[in-house]
Amino acid sequence: MTHRILFVCLGNIRRSPAAEGVFRVLMPDAQTDSAGTGDWHVGEPPYGPMQVAAQARGIDLSDLRARQFTAADFTRFDLILGMDMQNIADIEALRPAGNATPVRLFTEFAPETGATHVPDPYYTRDFDGALDLIRAAAAGLRKHLGH
């Protein structure tokens, strides 16, 4: 079974593209994408410092471009993962009536970290810390999916 997974953050230039990049390395057979709840960065590549931090770990994000989350994503994906609770609320606000696609907090897959969300490294400036947390959650997600 091919898993179709969408990673979502606010602008789709830091956390969600990093999560997509990390997960596609861990599980290349999955169909992945990322999106933002906002439209400020549509068409832009991931934030430079995030790309540099990811590249240092062998993760190439250069082919990714920001896009905005839409209600159609509920039918295009089997699982939608938000980076924080505001992302989850914004995603759920667009849920079509009767749709049952699971929407979960990404950090639920890394309970050992104690993290309640993936902090935005634009504000923390801790790109490596964000990637460590993303890697832990991606590994937990892979295990959850039975791989």
Rank of each mutant, 00 (worst) to 15 (best):
D78R: 06
A19F: 03
D60C: 13
F106T: 06
P49L: 03
R24T: 15
T107Q: 04
V52F: 04
A130Q: 10
F77D: 01
T37I: 14
L79V: 07
A130M: 06
R135C: 04
G48V: 13
R95I: 09
V22M: 13
G98K: 13
N12P: 01
M27L: 15
A97Y: 13
M50R: 14
L26I: 12
D60Q: 04
D120R: 09
V22F: 00
I134E: 00
T124R: 10
G58F: 01
M50K: 13
A138M: 05
L105I: 06
V118T: 08
V52D: 12
R57D: 00
F23A: 06
T2W: 01
Y122G: 03
A18P: 11
G43K: 07
T2F: 01
V42S: 03
M50V: 08
L94T: 03
C9R: 05
T32H: 04
R4H: 14
R67N: 08
L145R: 11
A115L: 11
G82F: 09
E44P: 00
S34W: 08
N99M: 02
Q31H: 14
A100G: 03
E44M: 12
H41E: 15
E108W: 06
D78K: 05
H144K: 15
R14F: 10
Q68G: 02
D29K: 15
G38F: 02
V52Q: 15
E112T: 08
M83F: 01
D128H: 12
T32I: 10
A130L: 02
H41N: 14
G114N: 05
P111N: 08
A54S: 13
V22C: 03
G146P: 13
A19I: 12
Q68T: 11
P17W: 05
D128S: 13
T70V: 09
L133F: 06
D73W: 06
F106M: 05
V118F: 05
G21A: 10
Y123N: 07
H3L: 13
G58N: 05
T37P: 03
